[in-house]
Design a protein around this nucleic acid. Structure first.
Lengths: 343, 343
DNA sequence: CCGTCAACAGAAAACCTTTTCGGTCTGTTT
DNA sequence: AAACAGACCGAAAAGGTTTTCTGTTGACGG
């Protein structure tokens, strides 16, 4: 705990410094600090004291050089907003254990060249594994198979079936949304979704259809697709509500669209959830908790996705088969005021 | 370009592999690939071909071991949502240049023990520098001065004046907000802010006061402080509008509060921006762009903050003095529909 | 033909740590 | 007393790269 200097001027202390202070060889110092048995208790104590005094931290680069493992993982993303990548990062940290594994986060910004640069950088740093996070659930091009470490694709699957991809189950999400509305006694259900160029929009739509079929219901009006904005949610809901005044629930393709829908319902002097229930997707906290009333939403369980990805990478390092194909993560319904009256 | 196997099975290729294939020594191979002059053009070409063929990537851990620099930086955050840390990360990546420096991102989750763990891990990985990002602008406890690499505190300053901190200038932000409203012809300005336990709330409030003084105006009603929620923005604005019907502008402590204010104004049958202008802080895209009308806001220029932090770390590595004290980043006004009519 | 010089290639050390193996010492067994 | 076992410590190699220094080769001038 000496440290009185300014940051950066203290010289880095190595194992030989510790060994010298303790009056032993580096070999013995190493064994003492790593709990090896070939060292006397008194010597061990002396070494530990020396290490403490110098606040020695072993150089993991050097360790990695020997071990062939660096204890690092690369997280390669194009998720500008950090909306998906942060929960995934947290899940990965949980799975790895804080401090045991460190994560390189690289933002490719949807740019293939930049992605290649980052990939080279990560490989040159000898990461033990790679997690690739997309910003949408559509398939993305594979990084290829000549990568010397296990790769897991998360959120956006790889377009190569030989790769392992973990993605949210959007079909199930749509189904669950409808099942919840039906359980709440709704029968006249409409659907406003986002950009039809996104697989997420279409998949959720499919799930909505399945849910309705299972309940013997038919969608009120057509599914509306355009973009993910609140404005669109507002406008589309307005059209639907005007054309079909008997609507008693709206399934929205995202929380933002749902907020627009809430506005549209209120503008028409109708009450959420008494007259019309509204449900969103993503369970994005600032959106769902800020709205009036708070928004019921389907949470894609991104932390679990991240954790699963990390576990897969870990297992592959221990020699397990990495696996392949697209694996679906079940979503989770989070009920709030927009579908159920405050009672 | 060979690579036909599954990920993880290809053996990592080293410089000696390249040297062997090219029929030279590792020393020569190294010099050839690094553009050193002591190599004949023909030999260089042969080595480069071999490296290409084996798709050789130098091991930066090994390089770092020699050079004493790893080309990595640690980003230590407690920003659960990634709202501040992502732009800062992007700024840092820009400053460093994609691929040249890689960033470890660690989320301490407001937990001191976890932070210590991460810190140890980062130091053991011999990061060249450390950027510490807080989730609020209040001072945080210093990491201490016995850290062998330069440390820059961003967003949340260190409580130790000997550390270097880069933070948004919230006082200026408040002032700029008022100046803009005054320039738009507003004279009856109210103020709804967030949690008074946050320096950000108070600082912006101070700036609002300065702006009003400079314009010879007085605040309508009292500054309202409670929390950062939309609900509070709605409720507080409602009270203010009912009590002071002549209000023609509301400065809000955050974009979320501003959204609440928009709701309250609309609930009273008044029009934004014609009757009442509303301005927020943070310029958080999903909030400002989803609202009706879109929200004028003060952007804290977080990317610039991140870039500046990265540049400071870099400069310190090159021997420059790191500097100390709290440095303010000027904000930027982003004008949208909530303060200026569509014309 | 010898010496000089330049141009180039390779050997070896260095970075920091871990591990294997051999060596020293103490104490014990026959 | 001699041999032996066991406990402990240290020397050395390994891991991949860069750099310095030494050595080789060939050309050229004297």
């Amino acid at each position: 705990m000496a440290g009185t200097g300014r940051n950066g001027d203290t010289k880095v202390v190595t194992l030989s410094d510790v060994a010298r202070l303790a009056g032993v060889s580096v070999a013995t110092a190493s064994k003492a600090l790593n709990g090896r048995s070939q060292v006397a208790a008194r010597t061990r104590a002396r070494v530990e004291a020396a290490a403490e005094q110098l606040s020695f931290v072993p150089n993991r680069m050097a360790q990695g050089l020997l071990a062939g493992r660096t204890g690092t993982v690369g997280l390669l993303t194009s998720d500008l907003q950090g909306r998906f990548v942060i929960p995934i990062l947290m899940g990965a940290e949980d799975a790895f254990g804080a401090g045991r594994v460190s994560v390189f986060l690289c933002d490719a910004r949807e740019d293939t060249i930049r992605e290649q640069h980052h990939l080279q950088a990560l490989l040159s740093r000898r990461v033990d594994g790679l997690i690739v996070v997309g910003s949408r659930t559509d398939p993305r091009s594979t990084l290829g198979h000549d990568i010397p470490v296990p790769v897991v694709y998360v959120y956006a699957p790889s377009d190569d079936a030989g790769d392992l991809s973990l993605v949210p189950d959007n079909v199930a999400a749509g189904r669950i949304a409808v099942e919840h509305l039906v359980a709440c006694g709704r029968r006249k259900i409409a659907h406003v979704s986002g950009d039809p160029g996104y697989a997420a929009a279409l998949d959720r739509g499919v799930g909505v259809g399945e849910g309705l079929d299972a309940a013997g219901l038919k969608l009120v009006g057509d599914s509306m697709y355009a973009d993910w904005s609140e404005r669109w949610g507002r406008d589309a809901s307005a059209v639907l509500l005007d054309r079909h005044p008997d609507i008693d629930a709206i399934v929205c393709g995202s929380d933002q669209i749902a907020r627009g829908a809430l506005d549209a319902v209120r503008d028409r002097g109708r009450v959420v959830p008494d007259d019309v229930a509204v449900i969103g997707f993503d369970n994005w906290e600032p959106m769902v908790e800020g709205s009036r009333p708070e928004l019921t939403s389907i949470d894609p369980n991104l932390e679990l996705l991240g954790r699963a990805a990390a576990q897969r990478v870990f297992a592959a390092l221990d020699g397990d088969e990495l696996g392949d194909g697209v694996h679906l993560q079940a979503p989770r319904l989070v009920i709030r005021g927009s579908t159920v009256p405050r009672s």
